[in-house]
Design a binder for these strands. Structure first.
Lengths: 365, 365
DNA sequence: TGCTGGCACTCTTTTCTTCTGAGTGCTAAT
DNA sequence: ATTAGCACTCAGAAGAAAAGAGTGCCAGCA
């Protein structure tokens, strides 16, 4: 790929920025006035025609202005565009919005997604991958003769539980034994390692003839398998309809349908964001055919404990890459920070209580 | 409101059904052929013009066919339409889809919502109100010196938990004491009753100077307050775009935006479904202005323990009321059944295990 | 050699006009 | 009461013409 002259670059950038703003093919005259280089429209015309020959621009039809190609966008994103600084208000808004860490990870992600959608005016998606988890510790709480609770503390620090009703009765002592054995057998191992073999071993160890061990094992397996698949969510899907390229309901429908199935996103987008902090996928660079006419911008965030996730937006290829990238990376950073805070936070719930009764605040002296 | 002749009713019903199917104004000629009464189009024309005068129909313009008014739809829904029986496949599909109760309430609702959206081709909404809940039992699980888990068993049977990290250390014995006191003070009471007074009393009882009691209380309050507000969700929002009345992106956008904010729905729709099993809100009968041009059909379901919820769909006023009502009420019934099952189910997790290893199945002989 | 103004040409978009057809309301006859 | 017939209305389709935006190319100028 031959190096472009400075002027060509400047013109290309101007075309793209203009097109992003107006959604209409850009002509030489407009560029001559706006692009800041003091040459005539004829000169620009010849430059445009060369850029077109090189594949960075194209014409919808002979007598129309130029529109960026995917190659053009790519060059723009890689080399030409400069990330603008966030405005004071935007930065404030993000900080304020992600400021309160006392909400739990899921809510937080949801919140960040909405924020991203609102601030960029594109639908936002959040993906949170989880590495295969293990049980760190398992407790059985006796409720009554027919009922107990299983509580799992996972390696990642989250806690899961389930209330179990039995069609027969169990004694507390028996449950305690079960708990010990289950801890010994099901902790620290991956989902795959909990096989029938292991379960039977545990069963024999406490002479369990009623399948209690299997219940516990079943729950452990269910939880481990649920955790390790990535969770994805989309907010603000309706925002697509604002974009001129989605005025055609059929197009909008197909993309929105695709987005509304969270499963589609969880797998796909994650592998795409290998190295960088922010990743831009333009049009056909997307693997999913539903996204071939759109672009996706993804920012990586850190969810603590080595877990990481993505927050991003989907829009037409004519997307305001620089603005969105700036906002997303700021949001991702904020999210990482907030999640780190919330994981290590001491005395959660404190804030809320003080709110209820600020004067007589309980707590340490 | 004067009683309509049988023939007028038949014609009105025919107009509405035809309009529902075609989305286009219905003319006298078509009716003469299809409506099954053996009269000429001229006769029908005069009937139509009377129905128009009575306010059941209207004309978009002089030389167009007739379109139902809200009044017309209302009469149709109240008196004219007959709920068709579900086709065998549809009934099967619903039963199969809601058959597996081992998923947890939230997933189940979500699942039912998707099902409703898929089967009706309109966006579906689910609302689940919860009566104020109380803690039935509270456990604190000691993990290590700086960490413990709070487990709440609620009156409704759900279990909630939280992992707490402390900036100082606690002994196991101390935690046990705390558990006892917390059980004594925070169980069986509503959120409002857990005030600073009560918390301080508990604190004094175990000489808690580190605010541990407050942490536990904070969590209890958080959970109780979270449970008691209704949860709402929408699935298949994109399906709106298939309806001709939402070809205009602006219209679609405003409604979809409204729907995507779950808060809007939770409050509103619930109060509307007082008596009946199924409730139809046509156009301006909706309170929310965003729904004034649309209709909502709601079916009530029973979530066990006196809790109840709504499942419904949103669509244009030109909605296939009878078909949708039939499906929704079947789904609602199935959902009630499934939720009842899942609450009382014995040995959850069993099925899964057997699937993994059908030969060497563990369990009771 | 690089830039510019000028000009003919192309093609979309807009606007205006005309035409068509579905559907009505009325009337007179059965 | 019902029907056939007929004149009338009006939205939407189809077509023609005009407008406009932008290009490519060329000849002249620094």
């Amino acid at each position: 790929m031959a190096k472009l002259s400075e002027r060509k670059k400047k013109i290309l950038a101007a075309v793209i920025e203009e097109y992003i703003a107006s959604a209409e093919p850009v002509g030489s005259k407009l560029l001559a006035e706006k692009a800041g280089l003091h040459v005539s429209s004829a000169t620009i015309r010849s430059e445009l025609s060369e850029l077109t020959a090189l594949g960075y621009l194209e014409q919808p039809h002979t007598s129309a202005g130029r529109v960026p190609t995917v190659l053009g966008y790519r060059l723009y994103v890689n080399e030409l565009m400069q990330r603008p600084d966030l405005s004071r208000e935007d930065a404030d808004r993000i900080n304020r919005s992600l400021g309160d860490p006392a909400q739990g990870q899921e809510r937080m992600l949801d919140h960040a997604g909405r924020l991203a959608a609102d601030m960029t005016d594109y639908p936002a998606l959040t993906v949170c991958s989880q590495p295969p988890d293990t049980v760190r510790r398992l407790d059985l709480i006796y409720v009554d003769a027919n009922t107990f609770i299983i509580v799992l503390l996972l390696g990642s620090g989250t806690v899961q539980n389930k209330l179990v009703h039995l069609p027969f009765s169990v004694e507390e002592a028996q449950l305690r034994k079960l708990g010990t054995v289950a801890n010994a057998n099901f902790c620290g191992v991956t989902e795959a390692e909990i096989d029938a073999e292991r379960i039977r071993a545990a069963e024999r160890a406490i002479d369990d003839r009623m399948g209690l061990t299997a219940v516990v094992a079943g729950f452990v397996i269910e939880i481990l398998s649920r955790c390790h698949c990535a969770r994805a969510a989309v907010s603000g899907g309706a925002k697509l309809l604002r974009q001129p390229e989605f005025q055609d309901p059929a197009k909008a429908h197909s993309l929105m349908d695709y987005l509304s199935d969270a499963g589609n996103l969880s797998g796909l987008s994650f592998t795409d964001a290998a190295g960088q902090d922010i990743r831009v996928l333009i049009g056909p660079e997307n693997i999913a055919k539903e996204l071939r006419d759109s672009s996706v911008i993804l920012a990586k965030y850190d969810a603590g404990d080595g877990m990481q996730g993505l927050i991003g937006v989907v829009g037409p290829t004519r997307m305001d890459y620089s603005r969105v990238a700036a906002k997303l990376s700021y949001i991702a950073a904020g999210l990482s920070r907030a999640l780190a805070d919330s994981a290590g936070t001491a005395l959660p719930g404190f804030g809320k209580l003080m709110l209820t009764d600020p004067d007589k605040k309980p707590g340490r002296p």
